[in-house]
Computed example of a mutant assay.
Amino acid sequence: MKRARNFNAGPAALPLEVLQRAQNEWLNIEDSGMSVMELSHRSAEFEKIHNHAIQTLKEIMEIPDNYEVLLLQGGASLQFSMIPMNILKDGKRADYVLTGSWSEKALKEAKKVGETAVVASSKDDTYTFIPKVTDIEMNEDAAYLHITSNNTIYGTQWKEFPETGSVPLVADMSSDILSRKIDVSKFGIIYAGAQKNLGPSGITVVIIRKDLITDNDKIPSMLNYSIHSKSNSLYNTPPTLAIYLLSLVLDWAKEQGGVEKLAQINEEKAKAIYDTIDNSNGFYKGHALSDSRSHMNVTFTLPTEEAEKQFLKEVKEAGFVGLNGHRSIGGCRASIYNAVPLSHCLELAAFMKKFQESYSAKETQAL
């Protein structure tokens, strides 16, 4: 079977080596005589897999000892509610920076819980850039400051993070976690749906500073960080297959050379496509301003709607998958997460150049 050149935004490409290993272990995991999907989540075999995933993430991201790693369900979308329910106390305000649709959704849910404020936004400019950290009008007594580190729909990414002092910095890193080295100690909470850089859909990683985990019996148990922390994320039956695949992806990341090596490759992948856009004499136009460009999601348009339709038709016929832009803004988008090989990005760049030449030639002939 020929593997697709997968540029889906999520669920997204998984490393081939991970899929092959899972295939080899599909019927017999840890010599148990069972598939991982058949294991009891209380068994020694699964406990080993579960703890390995947590410890490997701590190692790769250099997570300090005063942080807890939780493996939860509900996607990043559930965290939009869990975060304010757990740390937005009465009399406090939660500050939000709006940089795209997902930060808007996070704010919408927080408003249902308590007082919020928008302290910086690029909405008026169709989210083409990330606000400067110096433009954030943060309340020094805020419960937390929330950002979305990478914006899949608009193709923007934070290049530096705000210094928040005693205010916890909370970041939705669903689409760029593990793609570059970060200082975890700068954050109060980092959360990420796994289906872009960490594994399949169904599992959400939450990295939370331990002092932010407090007992509150008014919060429903499934939404309470304290409950999940005390039970090592095994309060209820977890998504065992997703956790197993998460552990394999983290092993793969280590084998590639860790976050530093992945970041280097990601820069090369992004450069190949952005260079093609920049050297196209305006045939391709990137949505994001150059200093806010994402290394995970490259968003762009073509001169006309007709040209875009033809491009998307031909690129699909050539074996490239998932290049349609988000339905809310249209255009084109190449999601180039960790598991997307550099070779696929180089092939896409070559296709884009070839398409421009052939389409422009046809336009000239028509005239």
Rank of each mutant, 00 (worst) to 15 (best):
N281P: 06
K269P: 03
I273K: 00
E314A: 00
N324F: 11
G325P: 01
G325E: 01
S280I: 04
E306L: 10
K269C: 06
T304D: 06
L302E: 08
T301W: 05
S292Y: 01
A307W: 09
G322V: 01
H326E: 08
D275S: 15
K285I: 10
H326N: 12
I273V: 07
K316D: 15
M296V: 14
K316L: 12
F311I: 02
I273T: 04
L289C: 14
K269D: 11
I273F: 03
Y274G: 00
V315K: 00
D275G: 05
G319A: 08
F320P: 02
K285D: 12
K316W: 04
E317I: 10
K316T: 09
V315N: 00
S290T: 11
A272D: 03
A288T: 09
S280C: 04
H295A: 07
A288W: 05
L289I: 06
H326P: 03
N281T: 08
E317M: 12
L323K: 01
Q310G: 07
D291A: 14
A288Y: 03
E305N: 12
L323T: 00
F283G: 02
A288V: 03
Q310L: 14
K285A: 11
T301P: 01
H295F: 11
S294L: 08
G322M: 03
S290I: 12
G286C: 10
S290Y: 12
L302N: 01
F300Q: 07
A272S: 15
K309S: 10
L312E: 07
D275K: 13
D291T: 13
R327K: 04
N324I: 03
I329F: 03
E306N: 06
I273C: 02
K316I: 00
N297H: 15
I277A: 06
E317Y: 08
R293F: 05
P303D: 08
G330P: 08
Q310R: 12
A318V: 04
V298M: 07
F320N: 05
S290R: 14
L323Q: 00
T276R: 05
E305A: 09
T299H: 09
D275T: 15
N279D: 15
S280W: 10
L323P: 00
A272P: 02
L312R: 03
K285P: 00
K313L: 11
N281W: 05
I329N: 11
P303R: 13
E308T: 15
A270I: 02
S290Q: 14
L312M: 06
L323S: 00
H287A: 07
L289D: 11
K269S: 13
V315F: 00
I329V: 13
G286Q: 13
E306Q: 13
N297F: 14
E308D: 14
Y284E: 07
I277M: 03
R327I: 07
K309L: 09
E306M: 11
G322F: 01
L302V: 13
N279W: 04
G282A: 09
A307F: 10
G319C: 02
A272H: 04
T301N: 09
I329R: 07
A272G: 03
K269I: 04
H287W: 09
T301L: 07
